[in-house]
Amino acid sequence: MALIEIKNLHAEVGGKPILKGIDLSIESGEVHAIMGPNGSGKSTLSYVLAGREGYEVTEGSVTFDGADLLEMDADERAVAGIFLAFQYPVELPGVTGMTFLKEAVNARRKAAGEGEIDAMQFLKMVRAKAKALGVTDEMLKRAVNVGFSGGEKKRNEILQMSVLEPKLCVLDETDSGLDIDALKVVSEGVNALRSQGRSMLVITHYQRLLEHIRPDRIHVLAQGKIQKTGGPELAHELEASGYADFAEAAA
């Protein structure tokens, strides 16, 4: 059974239809990429999956790990194993990275009927993972994303992903605003998290991220629909021809 099964998904924002019938299913352990021009509905899809308020599903279904995802609140989806790496990570003044991670982990433990995590053990674990991603202790002590550079914010997102061990990672334009070195660090972090029990949905406008994170399947999203699906080679095709064909095809 697929980890996530999206069927005929329609969604609108502020009364405006954005997604117009998405069908997509991702097996456990697979990495899929969604590419598409600006305004095609890429970010909307990530928000709909994560359960952001204001993103109204009007038709279709999403089954995640055997459960009806659309019935769940945003935090329930997160606890169930969906992780969204934000395109624009949000600042939380006064809330340190460590506190934030602990709250998030304990929310999961609570749902599983477990007690709060041991603080010392947790600290050790986070530090080890942070080190691998080049996230310094000082960053963990600072307020989440406050005063972080673009690269720091993205590394911090991947760190959270690594600590929270989700089943499905949705990476929303994770490459945006990153220089080539930062892109490498982030991609390596993501690749290290690839495993049999974890799927990924990588959303991007450009092919360059997919050079580093090699997907199993690529879908082209335009006009609120998946227009084409193929293997990794599809990225190169798009790089050469652009999205113009799909815009026309849909129109």
């Binding site: 994560a50 935090d75 997160a78 949000v90 506190t99 929310a107």
Partner: peptide
């Protein structure tokens, strides 16, 4: 901010508290 916290698994109440 609310969505960011909830996306990481915090309930609405816990997010506000945090």
């Amino acid at each position: 901010q609310m969505f960011y916290c909830q996306q990481r698994g915090l309930s609405a109440e816990d997010a506000v508290g945090l």
